[in-house]
Design a protein around this nucleic acid. Structure first.
Lengths: 245, 245
DNA sequence: TTGAGCAAGGGTATTCAGTACCCTCCCGCG
DNA sequence: CGCGGGAGGGTACTGAATACCCTTGCTCAA
């Protein structure tokens, strides 16, 4: 399509393109979709790709990995993204943005993602593998939150549950989009699902992207409530009275 | 939590005890703990158990299954437990009780559970398998909630996120107990974790079995802050000053 | 220019999980 | 007595994954 001779201003540096890796993925998916995953052997794949059997395992540790060729990079991106977080950031918003990295990876190749979704639905082994990949994302988010919530009373529990919630919400919207054939833009649905979690969980400001509350108005807000009132209800009242969101 | 029936078996009928199955589990764990999981072959196990290789796969579909010998039964118990739910039950409480079924399975064999925990921490393949088992529990809970929340606006999303939260909270407390060596009773910690989820998730109804917002103090709290202060920071300050758990 | 070094890929043999197929007991029942 | 079925045993086979070694081609320094 577009000659990528010059360095594009992409955020994801996949410039040192390995042609062999992509040839293996293409060959594998062609066979997987034609005969099925378990009916395709590694020898089938490498013979179609025109490479040696040994080279397959040079690029993919296992047969399942060829189905998820860019999750490792995405996981590294997420880790780096969270490590680059500032202490002043809202941790919940940061984690939601980290989840959006995964969404973007799927949305970048809609057809590929939908095909893979069809495979994972049918093959139990691939579903297991996908679940373990999702679990790695969740662990990464939880680890970040665990540090950010270290000073809180139930910080670890909060971190684990919140990470699980974010992942579940993200996957819910993502699967809806995949089931629909990957048509359109899934970001809106994911934003809705994530804001649902943020509202019920730490219902602070719900803005697009970073969710920064730019300090235009330095007014002072006074809140009076009973101690027994749930925090989420207090926040909801404050937000609606401030006209936010 | 309520299981007191006159005959001792509450929900778990393990009466037709297959001696061979348990002999295989014992032999497998003896070898796994001695040499490690991957260093032990199926032939090692069956020769120690004194049975034929074919018999192993008669009882366990794969090598990993011998490490989790009673999850299938527990999953069936959970499904049955949820199917026996009445429409008048609080779905959230029901799901928490379902999660407690898993806890009880672990707590019934503390030493075994701790040994297995040591294995799953070391062997990536076993961790993957365990994650996929947890995912099956989560799916079961989510399916139940999906039906119960069918009339709500975001019922499916709510069901998925809540199921993930319950599972995460349960696993958090369970792993704490396992890391501590399986000493004592884990039910209290799990109850605490589950009530944490219930408080943040369905704050409108905090009924029996764990909800302790316990409106002892109906004092009035006054909060003064700048509008530009992020809401999450306000919440944290209020929570810590209130000494909430 | 040449040769050392090295990176990338190829090829083959081996291990082991998992499956298919068939065999032998054993036990009850007609 | 014969028969049928279930529980267990044994063997051969497929295929994923690994180990080990070979070839090719490129770079860089002597």
């Amino acid at each position: 399509m577009s000659e990528a001779r010059d360095p594009l201003p992409g955020v994801t540096p996949a410039q040192p393109k390995p042609p062999m890796r992509e040839a293996l993925v293409d060959a594998a998916f062609e066979l997987f979709l034609a005969r099925g995953y378990e009916q395709t052997t590694i020898d089938d794949i490498v013979s179609l790709a025109g490479v040696g059997r040994r080279s397959f395992f040079r690029y993919f540790p296992s047969k399942e990995d060829v189905v998820f060729p860019d999750h490792e990079r995405c996981l590294a991106d997420m880790t780096e993204f969270l490590a680059a977080s500032a202490d002043t950031d809202d941790p919940v918003a940061r984690v939601c943005d980290a989840a959006r990295l995964v969404l973007r990876m799927y949305a970048e190749k809609p057809a590929f993602s939908v095909q893979r979704y069809g495979l994972t639905r049918q093959v139990p082994g691939l579903r297991t593998y996908e679940v373990s990949v999702v679990w790695k994302y969740e662990r990464t988010l939880a680890e970040y939150l665990r540090v950010r919530f270290a000073d809180r009373p139930d910080g670890k529990l909060r971190a684990n549950v919140l990470a699980a919630s974010v992942v579940a919400a993200h996957n819910h919207a993502l699967r809806d989009w995949l089931r629909a054939g990957g048509k359109g833009d899934p970001t809106e649905a994911v934003d809705r699902a994530l804001s649902f979690v943020r509202q019920t969980w730490s219902p602070e400001a719900d803005g697009p992207g970073g969710g920064q509350t730019a300090g235009e108005s330095e007014d002072v807000v006074v809140v009076i409530t009973k101690r027994s009132t749930p925090m989420w209800r207090v926040v909801r009242e404050v937000e609606s009275s401030l006209g936010e969101n």
